[in-house]
């Protein structure tokens, strides 16, 4: 295809440049600031590569190894352990489901306590928020590790870990949902003589429940991914077998397990996004 390019004459170009300096080049201050930021980011990155001991030799041999592993992974094959892996899959699902549910049950009251429009006392909701932040600051896997030492190996530790981490995150999401709601129904209930509890029950709950349910489902999706890895520290599910098979270099089983994970997450995403859109009543966006 032949495209004729129309170039403005030099005089026109100069006239345009004086009339619209912004369009030709950003002003020098912005440019300097941009360059300094980019330079600092680059310098930090170079320092990081040096400090963490990156080198091209290791990168090259590592990539070669990785390519070799990938050829060994084909085709995915569970060997004789298929029933075991299917059971682990159910375990993973159970961890995600019960963990999310338990976390949500505990987070539910916290969501109201941490909301500015329910608890007017600034210290009370500040304290609740900091507790939620602290719980959120600790990763699920750390919780899993702690629960394994407390309740022993197995999926139950995974459930507790997912639940604990969910309290922090769902509590924050819930409180934001509660703060975003419409005041009018609450005022209506109070005006007709309702107690604060009744205001929450009849003025707030009907508004927030659909939002909470959709967030809960969204969180279930995310927890389904997370529950595949709590097994790495011994808390049940697919991760346990995955970590084991990687350590003994059984690559075909590794790829089969990763495939199982991908399919499980895909199916859960599909179902739960349908449910979510059914609850909040919007058509799913295109893939």
């Amino acid at each position: 295809m032949n495209r004729a390019r129309i170039q403005p004459a030099a005089a026109d170009h100069a006239r345009l440049a004086t009339a619209f300096p912004q369009a030709m080049a950003p002003d020098p201050a912005t440019r300097v600031r941009l360059l300094v930021t980019a330079g600092a980011a680059l310098a930090l990155a170079l320092f990081g590569f040096w400090h963490l001991g990156f080198n091209f030799d290791r990168l090259g041999t590592g990539l070669g190894q990785l390519a070799h592993f990938i050829t060994l992974m084909m085709p995915p094959d569970p060997g004789t352990q298929l029933p075991l892996y299917i059971h682990a899959l159910w375990e993973t699902l159970a961890i995600a489901f019960l963990g999310t549910l338990l976390g949500a049950l505990i987070a539910f009251p916290f969501g109201f306590l941490a909301a500015k429009n329910v608890i007017a006392n600034i210290f009370a909701h500040f304290a609740v928020r900091r507790v939620l932040d602290t719980v959120r600051g600790v990763d699920k896997l750390i919780w899993a590790l702690i629960y394994v030492t407390v309740v022993g190996l197995g999926p139950f530790a995974g459930i507790l870990a997912i639940a604990t981490a969910s309290i922090g995150e769902l509590g924050k999401l819930f409180s934001e949902a509660v703060e975003a709601l419409d005041r009018k129904p609450v005022e209506g209930v109070t005006a007709s003589g309702g107690s604060p509890m009744e205001a929450v029950r009849f003025g707030m709950l009907p508004q927030v429940l659909p939002v909470l349910a959709s967030q809960l489902l969204y969180y279930f999706e995310s927890n389904a991914r997370q529950s595949t890895i709590v097994g790495i520290v011994g808390a049940g599910g697919l991760g346990l077998h995955l970590a084991e098979q990687i350590r003994v270099l059984e690559w075909q089983k590794v790829s089969f397990l990763i495939l199982m994970m991908l399919v499980m997450v895909g199916v859960i995403d599909f179902i739960s996004s349908r449910l979510r859109f059914a609850i909040i009543g919007r058509a799913p966006t295109s893939v």
Binding site: G62, Q65, R225, G239, L242, A243
Partner: peptide, 19 residues
């Protein structure tokens, strides 16, 4: 695929350490 699964694979390929 969770980060940690990639990390497990990469630790075998690249060796222990931050890389």
């Amino acid at each position: 695929v969770p980060e940690l699964v990639f990390a497990l694979l990469f630790v075998v390929a690249f060796g222990l350490g931050p890389m």
